[in-house]
Amino acid sequence: MSEKNIVLHVADVHKRFGGLHALADVDLQVEEGTVHAIIGPNGAGKSTLLNVCVGRIKPDQGQVVFAGEALNNHQPHEINQLGVSRVFQTPEIFADLSLLENVMIPAFAKRDGAFRFNASAPVSTQKDIREKAEAALEDVGLLNRRNVEAGSLSRGDKRRLELAMCLVQNPRLLLLDEPTAGMSRHDTNSTIDLLKRIKSRGMTKVIIEHDMHVVFSLADKISVLAQGRIIADGTPEAVRANPKVKEAYLGEEQT
């Protein structure tokens, strides 16, 4: 490995579900400021890996170290407070709230997350938070619909909203679970553009994706996961040339 600053280190993680060895000895290092893609066939354990990173699943063995801190005993909200935000495979948004509220809430998290009885000043007077939220909505192109109820959005727009909810927190590490699944080619391209734009902000990203077009236009590094193991690791060119990868993945499921 190079001398670069490792922001996320998944160290020898094992996870079993009954007889299924979902993650077997997974070791992954993500450098600060890079886009690190994780690819692999269905059922390879990609989502499990992300779940381990955000504290949704506890590993049986090994640990996840974020910015020098082991995450094993952290609650999901504590992990987020450390600077890890996540976009889910099926968008997790506040369906009954307006888009603006959806994005304002994450903007409050840094200050109010642990708990704050914040009832003296109404939401309408929170100018700074509101401006932050509007900027994030602008980033994803949803600003003109800020007062719409989030549940009424299309699936693609929900994904973009969720992305805005993560971006507004300006996390150190952003985990994206198939951010373009179910999107039209046009929406996919605009999401790629968006992710490229925010790349310049120095945010580290781990991205799970099926769409090779997305992976190869964004990723600095790629890890290939198959049957719970990392079978290849490296730059896009190296991974593309790796015969093991071709066999396990690219050969049968290139999109």
């Binding site: 609650q75 909200h77 987020n80 994450p106 708990f115 927190q169």
Partner: peptide
């Protein structure tokens, strides 16, 4: 769920 992953201790 989203609230938890957004950094709130609910």
């Amino acid at each position: 769920n989203r609230m938890r992953y957004t950094g709130f201790n609910t």
